[in-house]
Design a protein around this nucleic acid. Sequence first.
DNA 1: AATCCGACACTCG
DNA 2: CGAGTGTCGGATT
Length: 896
Amino acid sequence: MNPTEIYDALAEIAAEPFDATEFPFAFAAATDGAKAAISKLRSGSTNKSDLPGGVLFGKKFHFAPALAGMTDVTLDQLHSSKKTKTSKPAILIATDGEMISAEHPASGDTLHCRFDELGDNFGFFLPAAGKERYRAVEENPVDVKATGKLARLYDTLTKANPDWGCDERRHEMNQLMMRLIFCMFAEDVGIFPDNQFSRLLFTHAGDKGEEARETIIAAFRAMNQAKDKRDGLPAWTGELEYVNGGLFAGTIDAPRFDAVAFRYLREACDLNWREINPDIFGSMIQSVADPKQRSELGMHYTSVPNIMKVIGPLFLDDLDAEIHKAWDRAKGLQQVLDRMSRIRVFDPACGSGNFLVVSYRELRARETRILRRLEELIGPGSLTMFSAISISHFYGIEIADFAAETAKLALFIAEYQANASFAEIFGRRPAALPLKDAAHIRTGNSLRINWAEVCSPPGEGEDVFIVGNPPFAGSTYQTADQKDDMRELLSGHFKTFKDLDYVICWFFLAARYLRSNNASAAFVATNSICQGQSVPMFWGNTLSENFQIQFAHRPFKWTNNAAKNAAVLCVVVGISAGNNRKKVIYDGDLREEATSINGYLVEGPNVAVAASNSALFNLPKMYRGSAATEGGNLILTETEAQDLSEQFPEAAKFVRKFQGSKEVVRGEMRWCLWIKDEDVELAWSIPPIAERLRAVAKFRAASKNAVTRPAAETPHRFWFISGEAESHSILVPRVTSERRPYLPVVRVGADVISSDLNQVLYDAPEWCIALIASRLHIVWIGIVCGRLESRYRYSNTLGWNTFPVPKFSEDQLEALSASARKILRCRYSHYPATIAELYDPDKMPDDLRAVHRENDDLLETMYIGRPFRNDTERLEKLFKLYAAKVKSQDAKGAKA
DNA sequence: AATCCGACACTCG
DNA sequence: CGAGTGTCGGATT
């Protein structure tokens, strides 16, 4: 059950007459209890309650009936019940049929409400259904309730009017919803007098909504006409306000309402729309038109703090500095106001308009501050002006029609709310109706639209700020349409681009827009665009004299108030056409000025380490381990391996030790079937192996990947075999935790097959271990390789092949090998501690720290004659060596 | 033939 | 139920 359904079920209970014996089972059903479990509960066999008349339903809830007016006392009894302590139910609930007292023991939150408000407090009871409470519920219940009602209304309307659910009429449907929302909002905040809209609607629409369609059409037509021009419309429409403003322009139609839809409409009208919060609300009601989005309820809306990370450094901070400077000079403040009146904000992926709404609100707040100050400076009442910041200065492009309509509406509401607080302070406000301006929201694919046509480039003395949080999609997650967009846009401009994230397209278009205009842009993006291969692919090719990163937020975890958050780290990257302003890097709470910011979002010149297929500094060749790609059929657990060898002794030769990165770090072992081509027949003759091979073939044949399918012909082989060791292998996990002070690296015998989750040096000298286990190396890898969220990702092409080392002498190599042996010996001395335990930053043994320190000092002295002072110095040296090598190679390449 | 990545995908406490 | 931490194979070159 989703939250909306739980809301409905609880509301239904609240509407029925109260029955103390039946209530707990109805409540169990409403909070997603399984039928069978409830009938067991009813029979008493699973009811563990120790209170009279009580019902304790597993970990879900503990209920007890209360005497009239005593719900508090009963809740106390529930709270101190022994059974509550042992069973730990998510919710305690007591009721006498009049009032409810409830508690969420995990947080200590309590709820007291009337019985008939049970449904309205559904958020509180979600834990009984095994759902974490949706935190926005606590912040703003109206938003959530409104979303639920509107979703219901939308569903029933499209079900009763199938033509309204199809593509051709979707826009009209969305418009209808927005107009209804506007009317409900307007009458609750006093733009319309005295519940005018719903009063007339429910007077003329019939008891069950028989005439709802005609009534709504007439009402909307009236609102689109000045009061004296309403010929041909029913007389009752005469008192409706003239709204216009684009909101009621265009076709006006409505679907037929059945009794159910009409009831939802009535319930929606009954909500208090005064309280809605336009920035969050907009994101939530996007889910109204898209059932797929409902389970995520706003997973991808940008929270206000994250929006501030974009618009603060992009323009608000500068504005604040100007205001501060002019604070005592009326003339100076007037100039700031003047400038603000010529600011335009453009979000080319605006969704329901969060960025635009928040930007608008922030600008209006600053304007109000200035006007107040001006009154202090030149006397009260001396100003008659009203706001010069119009919502028509806000531009957006959005691909989903419903969201685009929401954005327009959200700005109307934001405008109204800003005017209301203006009126509170200055006692004057413009007439709310008719609506004058509207935001410019274009519905369409942002990557196929000329941005300059949507938001004309700024003229002299004007500013355009481009903001937003465009969608992220890595190459594996892109749809065919998105791939088309990328090809259309980027081919011809980049050698390779298909591995770039979809979000890059917005940076590309923003850069194009601001190259010829005095504008700047900043977007939220996935952190991967500033890591690993994306940096040489994109930033390395684009950053230049006249296009720079102006500010950046280093990676931060994505959060908003939605119940389920997207799992991703984000960055904010602000770009501007070349200018000499100071650059700023934000990292958590830190703010640091810089002279230039490179594609890795660190201070420094525009370096971008490109993947290299061979080692630039004469290091041994590093391979990726062998990739099985077999749906789990060639891999065995310890018991599977033992059983196989015992039952079929001739199979023993095919069973090999097998380690991926997890096994390396935790000191574990798996097994795999490793069958040489010459043994194929023997392998197929062993039944359990044959069975596995058939499964491998089936799995590969069914692959979506054209490169995998041919390997179905040779199911006995790993899909990709990189090599086999003669004496030993050195394994480096390709993804590992970022908490460890050194990268994990181990030496294993030739009997171990490494999976492709490790990078492998086959039969390489021991000094390689000393390099990989060094501080220098982890610092280099941390910068130039990609990351999985924040985890280290070890790549041979990006990290190992590019790792700069000085030319070592034989003696030096011998010293490094001895140092590597010392590290290994020290680890053995702590046997059976695993790599994970040994390198846990909180538990790392002192002696191991000491040998690593010695190893670092030894290696670093070979670079500069002494240990480095800090990581900044390490990176500077490494990048210097790298740059010199690339330069000399280019020179060689040019000669040849 | 070889490699990078994941608005991720698990597990464990 | 979120903090911790690495699977697996598709897509690309």
